[in-house]
Write a protein that binds this DNA or RNA. Structure first.
Lengths: 345, 345
DNA sequence: CGCGCCAGTCGAAGCGCTTCGACAGTGAGG
DNA sequence: CCTCACTGTCGAAGCGCTTCGACTGGCGCG
C-alpha cells in the first residue's frame, strides 16, 4: 500500500507537508504543492480512510436508514436513496446503508463505532423508538418524515397536511361534492406513520371547509386491494365523483378498474393523485397530481445534515409546500351530481 | 469517547486482554472474560471502527454498486439491495452504497482508500469498463450479472439463456406455434447488458428447436411503450398466440391492453412472464412466470464474497437454474391456430 | 538596524486498536 | 526431576494519518 510517507519521500518533503497539501489547512508554496501532487499522481496514492478517521475524528460517511418493507412504495424509496447518495457524493461523503429493521441498535452500532459522521433516517413513525436514541448520539441526524416529538432533531418532509387539503380542495373547486380518499395500506396507519395521518387530517379539513361528503379507505397495494376499495367506495358513497389517490401502487389498478367499468376519467370520475412525477407519467392517463418530491427531499436532508456538521445551521424542521400539476384527470362532475359550491354554506 | 483503555482499567487488565476477549483470538480465563464483558457493558464501550480498520486491515464493510437508472426495474433493484444488506449484516458486515454512475473511479476510491473489504457490483454490462478495474483491486469482488470477459472475477446470476429457452419452450409445449418476445427497453440492449441478449439467445434457441414463428420487441417501460409494442406484434405476427414478457414494467400494461381489446388470457393469448414472484402476485391475473430470484441472488453474492474473503473458495461463476411457476395465463392456443407440434419437422 | 510577522516547512505526539513476542504458572510425559 | 507444551496475560510496537508547536528566512516598518 502507498502511504503518505511514500509520497513525502518521493516529493522530498515531510509527511505533514503532504497532509497540508491534501487538506489545504496551511499555506504551501506553489512548487512544493506541484511536486507533492505529482508524487501522489505517479504513485497512485489514496489516503487510508481508517487512519484518516482515527486521526481526524470524522469519516466522511453518512448513515442512511431506509425502510425495506414492501408496504411502502418501493420506487419512491429508491428515489430517496438515490438522491441522498448523489447529494452526499456532491459533498464528498459516502453513504452507509442500513435497513429500517436494524432499529435503534443499528443506529447505536454505527454511530457508537464512529463509522459515520451523521445519520439520515427515513420512514419515521409518529412515536418512533429511534428518536430518543438519535437524540443521544454524538452525531447529528436528519429525519425524512415527521415524528410526534421531533424536538431536538431536524426533519424534512412534504407538508402532507397541506397536500391533503390541496387535493380535496382541487376537486371541490371543480365542483365535486362527494369525494373519496384512497389511502395507503392499513398497516401504514396502524404503524402511526405520520404522513398518512397528516394527509388525512388535511383532507378532512378541506372536506369540512368545503362541506363535502367523503369516504376514506386505506388500500392494500395490490390489484385486488384496489378492487375491494373501489367496491367499498361505491357501496358507501355511490354519488362519488372525485377520487383522491394517496397510494402509488393503487393508482394504475384504480384506473384500469374504472376503465373496465366504463367510467370515464375525467367525464364521470375525476382523480387527484399524490405521487412522484415519474409515476404520474407512466400511467395511461395524464393524471392531475401533487408531486412527492423525493429527490428534493433527499437532497435537502443531505444539505441540512451538512450544515449541522459544519455548524452553519442548527436544528430545524422544513416542510415543503405541495405543488399540484394539472393533468387530464380532473374536470367538472357529470351534470346532475354537481352543485356549484358557492351555493353551499 | 470510551476507549479500550477505559475498559481495561475498569476491568483491571491490559488493553490487549480486552482485545482478545473481543476477538477470541487467544484463550482468556472465564473470570477475566466475565470481568471484561461487564466493564464493556457498563461503560457502553464500542470499538472505534477506524482504529480497528487501521490496525486490523479490514473494515467489515462491503461496497455495493447499484444502478440508479430508471430503465432497469426499480423494485427488482431494491430487492437486490435489501437482500445484500441483510445478508451482509448476517455476516457482521455493513454496506456502503455506491451509484452505478460513479463508474470505475468510484470503485478505485472506496477500494483504494480501504473503506471496504470487498465489492459487489450490479448491472454489469457485456463489456463493462469496471471489470478491469475490479480485477486490479486488492479487494475481491462479485458481480451480479455476467460480463463478456469474466475471467478472474466471481459472478452470480440467473441463467438467462436457460430462462429464455424455458419460457418459449413452455408455450411450445402448450401447442403454441407463433410466439412473441416483449423484451427490456432498447437502451438495455444497446448498452450490451448481458442478461437481455442471453435471454434472447435462449428464446431463439427454443424457437428454432420447436420450429416456431416468432417476433422480438424491445419495449419501453411505459404504458404507451407497451401499447406500441402490442401494435407492432399484431402487425408482424398476426397469428401470435403466445407472449413471453421479459419486462416487469410492461406486464401490467400488456394485460390491460389485452383486456381492453377483448383478448382473453389464456383462452386467446397465453403469457409467460419473467419477473420476481411479488410482481407476479400484484397482477390481476395469476401469471405463469419464471422467477427472477433477486433475494437469493443477493444473498448468494454476499456468501461468495465472504468465502473469497476467508479464502474458503476461489473465484467462481454461479448461474441459477430458472424455476417456472404455473399460473392461469397459459393454456392451449385457440382452435384453428394450433397444430400439435409433433406434426412439425 | 532591529523588531515583529508571515509564509512555508518540519518533527513528533497522538488517534484507538490489533498483534507479536515474552513470560509466568501449571500439569503432563519421559 | 527436568523439560515441554500449553494457558493466560502483559507490554510495546506499530497501523497511516492529522495537527500542534516550533523553527527558518525574508520582508516591511519604525
Amino acid at each position: 500500500m502507498v502511504t503518505i510517507a511514500d509520497v513525502a519521500a518521493a516529493a522530498g518533503v515531510s509527511t505533514s507537508t503532504v497532509s497540508y497539501v491534501l487538506s489545504g489547512r496551511r499555506p504551501i508554496s506553489r512548487e512544493t504543492r506541484a511536486r507533492v501532487e505529482a508524487s501522489i499522481a505517479s504513485l497512485g496514492y489514496r489516503p487510508h480512510a481508517g487512519a484518516r478517521a482515527l486521526a481526524s475524528r470524522h469519516t466522511n460517511v453518512l448513515a442512511l436508514v431506509a425502510p425495506l418493507r414492501t408496504d411502502v412504495n418501493v420506487p419512491v424509496i429508491m428515489e430517496f436513496v438515490t438522491s441522498v447518495v448523489t447529494a452526499a457524493r456532491s459533498f464528498d461523503h459516502d453513504v452507509l446503508l442500513l435497513t429500517g429493521d436494524e432499529g435503534a441498535d443499528g443506529l447505536d452500532r454505527v454511530a457508537g463505532g464512529a463509522m459515520v459522521d451523521a445519520l439520515i433516517v427515513m420512514d419515521v413513525e409518529a412515536d418512533d423508538v429511534r428518536v430518543p436514541t438519535l437524540r443521544r448520539l454524538r452525531q447529528p441526524s436528519v429525519l425524512i418524515g415527521l415524528p410526534g416529538r421531533a424536538a431536538g432533531i431536524s426533519c424534512v418532509d412534504l407538508d402532507f397536511a397541506a397536500t391533503g387539503y390541496a387535493a380535496a380542495a382541487h376537486l371541490a373547486e371543480h365542483g365535486h361534492r362527494s369525494v373519496a380518499l384512497i389511502g395507503p395500506p392499513p398497516a401504514v396507519y396502524q404503524r402511526g406513520t405520520g404522513y398518512a395521518t397528516r394527509f388525512l387530517a388535511g383532507f378532512d379539513d378541506a372536506v369540512e371547509h368545503f362541506g363535502l361528503a367523503s369516504a376514506t379507505h386505506p388500500c392494500e397495494p395490490t390489484f385486488d386491494g384496489a378492487a375491494a376499495v373501489m367496491r367499498d367506495i361505491d357501496a358507501r358513497l355511490p354519488a362519488v365523483t372525485g377520487l383522491v389517490v394517496h397510494n402509488e401502487a393503487a393508482l394504475a389498478p384504480v384506473l384500469s378498474i374504472l376503465r373496465a367499468a366504463g367510467r370515464r376519467v375525467p367525464q364521470e370520475v375525476s382523480i387527484v393523485a399524490v405521487c412522484p412525477q415519474n409515476v404520474a407519467l407512466g400511467l395511461p392517463v395524464r393524471v392531475t397530481s401533487i408531486d412527492v418530491p423525493a429527490p428534493q427531499l433527499g437532497a435537502l436532508a443531505v444539505e441540512m445534515v451538512m450544515h449541522l456538521l459544519d455548524g452553519s445551521h442548527g436544528v430545524q424542521t422544513r416542510l415543503l409546500a405541495p405543488v399540484l400539476t394539472e393533468g387530464d384527470s380532473c374536470g367538472p362532475p357529470p351534470p346532475g351530481t354537481a352543485r356549484p359550491h358557492t351555493s353551499v354554506h
